[in-house]
């Protein structure tokens, strides 16, 4: 049974704690700006990108948007889980329940994810004239949700700041260089990276405005798998922690 009052209070408290930190706020706004503008500038100097339909500068901005959206939400998910272990134990004692606590953490991550998505979207469209704004939001939001779940999974499996940060940093970095499609690499390897399908949706949103249902379907499938994994891992491991 989920205590709605406790979940609402918990989410509100988590969000206030997050947004009250000036460094978090600065990171939310400044870092996407640097990533999107910086990657757009650097890739804009390249003559052409084989197999890529977008202009190099657009491709760079896409890389930057996917990178900052994914990593920021992922990191938020990671630290939400790691830093809340003690608080969760206490909340469980006062009747929070394991699923109530998970629901609270996931809701916080999703709200921050939506916020991160909107900031990245607004910065992203400053330099491009996209064919479909809906597809861009859809793509960034799906990446954000995926990485939020990744953050939860990593935070539960590797429940220490240093180790969890290392995994998240490498996942995001490998994903942006190998999964986003900027290099014409072997297709099956690209498909294993979380941003692969959302990056295709983003590319279509920028260039053609067409909607390929396969890309959306695989993105949703990826999200369902991650959500199920996060739920199962949290449930199994929290039996020991929360009783």
């Amino acid at each position: 049974m989920i205590d709605k009052g406790m979940v609402t209070t918990g989410v509100r408290y988590n969000l206030m704690t997050f947004f009250r930190n000036p460094f978090n706020l600065a990171a939310l706004i400044l870092l996407p700006l640097i990533a999107i503008e910086g990657m757009g500038y650097a890739l804009g100097t390249m003559p052409e990108l084989p197999g890529i339909i977008a202009m190099p500068e657009e491709e760079g901005r896409m890389m930057g948007a996917l990178f900052s959206t994914s990593f920021l939400t992922g990191l938020m998910g990671l630290f939400q889980v790691i830093s809340s272990r003690e608080a969760d134990r206490r909340l469980n004692v006062v009747g929070g329940g394991r699923f109530g606590l998970l629901f609270m953490r996931v809701s916080t991550i999703l709200i921050v994810g939506i916020f991160v998505t909107m900031i990245n979207y607004l910065i992203f469209i400053r330099g491009v004239d996209p064919a479909s704004h809906h597809l861009i939001v859809l793509s960034l939001l799906s990446v954000s949700i995926m990485y939020g779940f990744f953050g939860v999974i990593i935070g539960v499996i590797v429940p220490h700041d240093l180790e969890g940060s290392l995994v998240m940093v490498f996942l995001a970095d490998m994903d942006v260089f190998l999964g986003s499609g900027v290099f014409e690499t072997e297709e099956w390897i690209q498909r294993t990276f979380p941003t692969h399908y959302p990056s295709r949706i983003l590319e279509e949103g920028v260039v053609e405005g067409t909607f390929t249902s396969d890309y959306a379907l695989f993105s949703i499938l990826y999200m369902i798998v991650l959500f199920t994994a996060a739920l199962s891992i949290f449930y199994v491991t929290s039996r020991g922690d929360l009783g």
Binding site: N24, A26, A27, A35, F67, F71, L75, F79, M168, D173
Partner: peptide
């Protein structure tokens, strides 16, 4: 830690990687 990890990843990726 959160802003720090993010800044490090962004700095190294943008500077050395890009």
């Amino acid at each position: 830690k959160m802003a720090g990890v993010y800044t490090i990843l962004l700095l190294i990726t943008m500077d050395a990687g890009i």
